[in-house]
Design a protein around this nucleic acid. Sequence first.
DNA 1: AGAATAGTGTCTCTCAGACAATATCAC
DNA 2: GTGATATTGTCTGAGAGACACTATTCT
Lengths: 239, 239
Amino acid sequence: MRQDERDFLKGYDPSVFPPAAVATDVAVFTLQEGKLKVLLLLRAEHPFQDAWGLPGGFLQPQEDLAQAASRVLAEETGARGVYLEQLSTFGRAGRDPRMRVVSVAYTAFVPWNRVEVRTGRRTREVEWFPAHALPRPLAFDHAEILSTARARLRAKLEYSPVALEFLPARFTLGQLQGVYEAVLGRAVDKRNFRQKVLKARLVRRAPGVLKGRHPPAAFYEAGPGAREGAIYPPFRWDR
Amino acid sequence: MRQDERDFLKGYDPSVFPPAAVATDVAVFTLQEGKLKVLLLLRAEHPFQDAWGLPGGFLQPQEDLAQAASRVLAEETGARGVYLEQLSTFGRAGRDPRMRVVSVAYTAFVPWNRVEVRTGRRTREVEWFPAHALPRPLAFDHAEILSTARARLRAKLEYSPVALEFLPARFTLGQLQGVYEAVLGRAVDKRNFRQKVLKARLVRRAPGVLKGRHPPAAFYEAGPGAREGAIYPPFRWDR
DNA sequence: AGAATAGTGTCTCTCAGACAATATCAC
DNA sequence: GTGATATTGTCTGAGAGACACTATTCT
């Protein structure tokens, strides 16, 4: 071994790497029947066996954090191809009864019915719960993670095009308005809403109409103002 | 051992906790001579010996993440009593040549001269660098952490009272405007600026004036509109 | 016919941003 | 006196938000 190689390794001392496992938890939101819902699973194994919790698991050696989150989500719930965004990291000592675990939480927003959900590994059941009626108690500090995630979602709604992530490529303005109303938890004025999303170029007309139980509604799609986390003009509706 | 205790431990299997160390890195910003600066240290040990990098270190067994960040910052730079905010977590495989390390990054914004900085553990020098003239290369992925931190700072400036964190309890409007100009990197109109911060109640008049090299400037302090991360009316100045 | 939703326009008020001249203090 | 900074007000244009009625489709 050459001198420079020895120097290189000099900084490695196992005693400076105290044991803390790295995990990831994933909060997936969707909109179903006009309500904001979260994907939870009934845990089949300890700890917190038989409690509901977020999909989660440990980081594997060669995996990036986002990859781990994506893999864990797929393994435990079957949901694939979901775009995940890092939320925050939770590492309170004692949050996992087994040992010190630091968990990097991710969130996702998906159109209802775009993800296939099934019961997976370490899981007894997988189910969408209304965000305002979660089962209690949740495993670990998952209640805290979820409340952080909801706060982030509400904030992002006002300055980013997140709302579109809940919808398929083509949607009606009524559906889009429904997303805002469900997340914000209040009604918004239809005329102001339409005027604003169109002026901001958040959406633009797409071909076709949705024939529904009543008058046909025009389809819209993401507009040029909705490019990847853009939309600086903040959105606020009514009071 | 009782059955329930055995059940409890059943979930513990060392093989599911692959070795990844948890670390923390801290990006401290300040304003000095009208320029945004970052606190860096010259590393005295491997890896990246003799390169500049952020203060950082490993999580200790009983420590919360924020505590670890605070301790590491104090040990390596002497800065104490700094309010830290979690930024994001960086965990790309290979970001540390020794082993897999996941780092939870924190940021802080401090008034120039409110922190005592000195050379500390594992450190050869500690110095403030202008944010737009950083030494290269930086250790690990610290360049990426810093650019994320700067982006976050710029965003927060517009909808939160972060700017006040760079200033002492009493300050002049000229100083406050200087913070905005340094972070945004452009000039803002003095009249619009004053009108806006006062109308938004971000600041209010404090007793006294600052006698300087020229006309005395009135002191101001944080106003009722500046309570902990509030200020929803987004700030934008000029173009 | 009735229920449910789609679609549409105007007004007011507030705020963002452009813009310039005078007073004060230290040297 | 000079240089540097403090302080002050008005106008215009854009956007937020309040507000109500008609048309369509399905049952």
